[in-house]
Design a protein around this nucleic acid. Structure first.
Lengths: 195, 195
DNA sequence: AGAAAAGGTTAACACTGTTAAGTTACGTTT
DNA sequence: AAACGTAACTTAACAGTGTTAACCTTTTCT
């Protein structure tokens, strides 16, 4: 395996095992049996390394969402499954999910904007699904892109509360998730009476 | 003014002006015309200092929410106003809002849990409002505490997308906010036909 | 006045990201 | 085969970080 990939994998392992705050160039390097400076031969700096990792994570999240799409579902069922997939991914890959949202454009101005556009593209997928589905279920989709973003933002909020350990201990996590999903889905449904 | 308060204010200013990443004990100290070690006479460590700041921010957020409560509103109107207040606070105090959610319990195990319970208590306020309001508007409130949390989580998601600069540039921020609020509120309304 | 405590300092430790300069090894061209 | 170029890697260093120990000075209390 090339050192570049070795570094990426070691960083990911370190991230998963010890968390974001415990990561340092020297620790990564030592676990790859290399000096810290060697990392700079393959990555511009620490942010570049992390961004590369982010891109990978985005890709797997995107794939998971893609795999959960099935044209046989109705829109509400499809949205429900997307929501579950999204939340499951986040809870099963907390450190990866975290760095996706941790790194902020303005804090790394050196980087080309298209990298961040990449990060966003995962949500276009949701927009596509809303746009392409048949609208027979009294759904609000005046602007599918905006709807996709509100959908995603609400999912992110749910995940965020759990990952940041801000959920009240009296509330079971699964109950919170289920109820949140129901609220979110219902937000998309018109108040018109169903046929 | 006591040095303790001086430090708090200087830290807050630094935070607002230069952001989270640019904060260091020495920079804070120098702006207060003091040595870095002096800070440790008033705060256990950097996390303690930031936690104290968080508590202050929570207090003002809580106050803003409290001030927006008016028993003359119906529940949906009240929720809408709470949502607007919450989002406005976050967008007007981005750095303060950020540190509220940035510091994670597991990353500072030295701290007593009740400090984090304090952080959470702002959302009990929302729970109270849902619980105390009359339920004549076909609202889902089987468990007001859970409802409050889903409400807050969704708001946090909306704010988070904006503050993390993850909103698509094609979408106007105000449109996003308005539509998100509508979705969130609608999530609380039963599908029953209104009278 | 003398003791105790509070408020402040300097110097140091063990880290951090990052860079400049130097070394080694390998593949290509002549 | 010899020379060159370059890629991969290292050592040493810089400037910065949070934090602690030891020390000094000023205020407060008895």
């Amino acid at each position: 395996m090339s050192l570049r990939n070795e570094i990426l994998q070691v960083t990911k392992e370190l991230l998963i095992k010890e968390g974001f705050s415990k990561i340092s160039m020297r620790r990564i390097a030592s676990r790859a049996n290399v000096t810290a400076t060697s990392i700079y031969l393959h990555f511009k700096n620490k942010d570049d390394l992390l961004l590369t990792l982010i891109e990978e994570s985005i890709k797997t999240l995107k794939q998971a969402l893609q795999d959960s799409v099935n044209s046989e579902y109705g829109l509400t069922d499809q949205l429900r499954i997307l929501a579950e997939t999204y939340i499951n991914y986040a809870l099963n890959h907390p450190q990866e999910y975290e760095i996706i949202y941790m790194v902020r454009p303005e804090e790394m101005p050196k980087y080309p904007k298209d990298k961040f556009r990449d990060v966003r593209s995962a949500y276009e997928l949701i927009a596509d699904i809303i746009r392409e589905s048949d609208h027979h279920e009294y759904i609000e989709v005046e602007d599918s892109l905006i709807s996709a973003y509100t959908f995603w933002a609400q999912l992110h909020g749910v995940v965020s509360v759990i990952l940041n350990r801000r959920l009240d201990t009296r509330i079971p996590q699964s109950t919170f998730i289920d109820q949140s999903i129901e609220h979110i889905i219902r937000g998309f449904i018109n108040q018109k009476t169903p046929a």
